[in-house]
Write a protein that binds this DNA or RNA. Structure first.
Lengths: 223, 223
DNA sequence: TGCCATTATGGCAGATACTGCCACATTGGC
DNA sequence: GCCAATGTGGCAGTATCTGCCATAATGGCA
């Protein structure tokens, strides 16, 4: 997989097995729908077991069994058991990539990125909406599980390189150094990460702050 | 391991096995010295093999064999083969923790952190000094090896939680929100990460920029 | 110096994660 | 309704990592 630096394929699943992408976003198709369904079921099973028994004590066999598939099939959908716990983040990433497509190359990288992130965050404004709920749930789990935290970091790192390359292409090299691009992306990502963490922390403490607001004040604080 | 949020033990090795810490920093002791020696030898062997055959193709057995120890003993020194490639970063972290001890709780978290980082970076100012050389070497390897990149992220993530907690204790909660602390740390760390990356990239491109300068300009760009 | 508690090491078994390969079932298009 | 493409399961094999026990080296102390 040469992976020619681009974030245009918002529906790629990173799964080696089936579904070799033929614009499934436009026409989901029956096979693709079944696939997503199975994927979702596996994730549900994984999250349930992780919550109940902890990540360490949960085996891939257990997840596969709970999801009604074989272990072999599990690994055709996810590369590791930790990955199965991150569907919410993959949705987030998909939204992010779509937003990045509409970026203005003549603007400041930092400002453009912040705008896109803020826009994506709006999808999580309502703490009771399903999207926000599942994101909160996973993040609560991540808070307690170092293995999941590491998996998320790894997931982000894998994506970061691709996104940075794509951003570099998009902004061109005219007057915008690689340092500047990397810096813009990493600092924005850091603010976002903190916003998520604080969101979850406060939610667990009973407060009902919403994500966009937290992000806004975090961005403020970061200057 | 309760790990009561504190970065005072600069010599902890995170190894389950031997050396249950008895102020080895003050009095290295013969046993401790041997231990460090073995540790260094394992790392050397690991790095050599990683460079020659790649991380994937290198097995723990291979490393242990090259280092003249058993596989079982390897896992008493490192939790994974990837960890064995990060001694330079552990040195960096140790220096960082020492610096954090001298932090001024009445100052701005952001400024204090930046000061400490800058100070630690000074130790890598000379690109030909052994410290900088080994750091560069490892980072070049990390650039090409996703597995090592992931391991570093994981390593940092593990440390971050502890450091943030310690910083929170140090700055107290008086007027300094958790958001502010987390934010300061994450953004500083992001700038540092980028500085390292750019350092290595430019070095590979033949340029001889030194780390402190790159960090300074990165910090500048990040406002 | 010699004894003893501590600690370091090695070997072994076992659990789990992950991959390649092959056979078989299912599916969607013609 | 046939055929190629695709999804699934089983199996074997490798690698990572851990617990347990026996043994050897070490350092302190009488």
């Amino acid at each position: 997989m040469p992976q020619k630096s681009s974030f245009s394929d918002a529906s790629r699943t990173d799964v080696p097995g089936p579904s070799t992408a033929e614009l499934p976003a436009a026409a989901p198709g029956l096979r693709e729908r079944r696939r997503r369904q199975t994927r979702a079921e596996i994730s549900q099973a994984a999250l349930r077991l992780f919550q109940e028994y902890g990540v360490d004590a949960t085996t891939v066999d257990g997840i596969a069994n709970a999801a009604g598939i074989s272990q072999r099939t599990f690994f055709r959908y996810f590369t590791s058991k930790e990955e199965a716990a991150l569907p919410a983040h993959q949705d987030f990433d998909a939204a992010l990539e779509i937003g990045l497509l509409a970026i203005d190359p003549s603007g400041s990288p930092r400002e453009e990125l912040e705008r896109v992130y803020q826009q994506v965050m709006q999808g999580y404004a309502d703490n009771d909406a399903p999207q926000a709920r599942s994101m909160l749930l996973v993040n609560q789990l991540i808070r307690k599980e170092p293995l999941l935290r590491a998996a998320l970091l790894k997931h982000n790192a894998t994506r970061t390189t691709g996104l940075v390359d794509a951003l570099m292409d998009r902004f061109g090299r005219d007057g915008v150094s690689d340092l500047q691009i990397r810096l813009a992306f990493e600092t924005c990502a850091a603010v976002v990460r903190v916003a998520f963490e604080v969101w979850v922390t406060r939610r667990e403490a009973g407060r009902n702050d919403n994500l966009p607001d937290i992000y806004a004040s975090a961005r403020e604080l970061a200057h």
